[in-house]
Design a protein around this nucleic acid. Structure first.
Lengths: 303, 303
DNA sequence: ATCACTTACGGACGGCGTAAGTATT
DNA sequence: AATACTTACGCCGTCCGTAAGTGAT
């Protein structure tokens, strides 16, 4: 058994079982990858792939198991390489962060700024995705950290470090009727068209549940993955916005009125997720600490 | 990075950092192994080894880390191979058990007999060692299971499945004065020369603690790793024996009187230990079940 | 007919073994 | 002097790329 065979297996699984595409990703020609897969099957004496004629369409149960261990092996090899990198220079390397728009736009900027000042030789790579995608990326070691509120902590191979607590707030054009009451209620929210996040993002599912428990049906006229879009349409007068409190910018959003909604909805926790068996380089550990410290300070400032 | 490089690293660490001996174990010539180690260091750009001139004497901190991940990788490769073996034939393979003399001699025989009948095509390999050694063997994947009472459950990389509960009993030649009282006390035991297990074996350490708590000092005239030796010297009249109850054989030991001591000492638990990340083949899972079922039945029979 | 994978073949790289060299005990 | 590791060298295996072949859509 050789690393290249396992790499080909993994690349295959991550590219819809197209041998050609896997080969492309691996910077190899397609027959080479075919050979790896064949060798692996021969050596194990087992069918690993579901086949449709010559095309590979998926994995057998054995194949799934092997893939699992292959991923472990891949993780450990990159752990070994990371040990090497760490010794070459503790303060040099790459940090790959996968996160959602809201985190990238409103939470991470001060953290990233501090981190970059502390570790100027670390190259930061930010990737955006849905929480579900981010979890997969962490699991497949495509990113070092997945930072989001949803979907983390479900995956048994990932560790989820809680870092940041937030809730929702209401935004509306000034003088909007919903602002008449000091303390907004769920019922009051339902009387107006609502603009908020799409399902699977930024606590939308908990938001639905909260209304559901009271047998209320919010009238969501528009949903977006992205707070900026929500704000834009709130400004257009299309409806009232329910957004993460950390996405309200006191200075820039002076044209929008804000009301806290933390008495209505459950608190959400943003977590940093990474593989349990991951070797953390010194600057990676520091990044997590930065995140916790800075977001704790920002939380206080908000209160 | 290649598997052979990691294998050489592991072999080196397991052979007192002698490159020649590692090469021998790997069925390679010594320069080949030297080259692997050199390549690994070069590729990682780090000193992995402590050196004394040309001789290697140990690992640096980086080296230790790398060794750790290399072992993980090795385990996962054997997991992958096991998946293959499983599909070739579910009922064929090897089962490597590391255990202590007492378990091998008094507990395992009926379990092994049943297992062999159920899986005649599985080759059983039994290795003996001290609990400490057995734990290392499980950790290094030299055995599939370590079966013992001590030292298991301490190691973070091992899973310890409790299988069997036992306590001690007293054995003595018939008509020995210690037998006068029906219910033996710790004090009474101290009035006679005692023969029991050596430290680190078969609950000897808990036995010491129990006496210690009462500020009693047992007069141990002879200690052995092995119940048969203890019985032999008890028969010789050298003293009274304190042995595991499961090692008393009602039929064969009719010349020895037996008294239960479970009111004096804590219960001990025999466990099966294996690496947490180990892939268990079907017959390996069955072996654990056999162990639990059969020893539960034997426990009842004893009561 | 096109696309995707398999089979066939040759060149180049590299691993391992042999043998000679150097440091350690 | 003997042991243990390093360096040097050559053969052989094999890995990958090119190119032709085969089966699906």
């Amino acid at each position: 058994m050789e690393f290249r065979q396992l790499n080909s297996l993994i690349a295959l699984a991550e590219n819809g079982f197209s041998v050609s595409r896997a080969a492309q990703k691996l910077h190899l020609v397609q027959p080479a990858v075919s050979q790896h897969l064949k060798q692996l099957e021969q050596e194990l004496g087992t069918r690993l792939f579901r086949r449709n004629g010559k095309r590979l369409t998926g994995l057998t149960e054995s194949g799934e198991r092997v893939l699992h261990y292959a991923r472990n092996i891949l993780t450990d090899t990159s752990n070994i390489l990371a040990v090497g990198q760490e010794h070459v220079s503790e303060e040099k390397g790459i940090l790959r962060i996968g996160t959602t728009h809201t985190q990238a736009r409103y939470v991470l900027p001060p953290i990233v700024r501090h981190f970059s000042e502390a570790y100027p030789a670390v190259e930061l790579q930010m990737l955006e995705g849905t929480p579900r995608e981010l979890v997969d990326m962490a699991q497949e070691n495509k990113v070092d950290f997945a930072i989001c509120t949803e979907a983390l902590g479900e995956h048994p191979a990932l560790l989820a470090i809680p870092c940041n607590r937030w809730n929702r707030c209401l935004i509306a054009p000034k003088a909007h009727p919903v602002l008449a009451q000091k303390r907004v209620t769920l019922k009051a929210l339902c009387r107006h068209p609502i603009i908020t996040y799409v399902a699977g993002f930024t606590g939308r599912d908990h938001l639905n549940e909260t209304f559901g428990k009271e047998d209320l049906i919010p009238h969501v006229v528009l949903s977006a993955t992205d707070t900026d879009v929500i704000k834009t349409y709130v400004r257009e007068g299309m409806g009232i916005g329910i957004i993460a409190d950390l996405a309200y910018e006191r200075e820039k959003d002076i044209d929008l009125a804000m009301r806290d909604l933390s008495h209505l909805f459950p608190w959400e926790v943003t977590k940093i997720g990474y593989r349990k068996d991951k070797y953390l380089r010194a600057y990676q550990k520091r990044f997590i600490e930065f995140f916790q410290e800075i977001s704790a300070r920002m939380g206080q400032a908000a209160v």
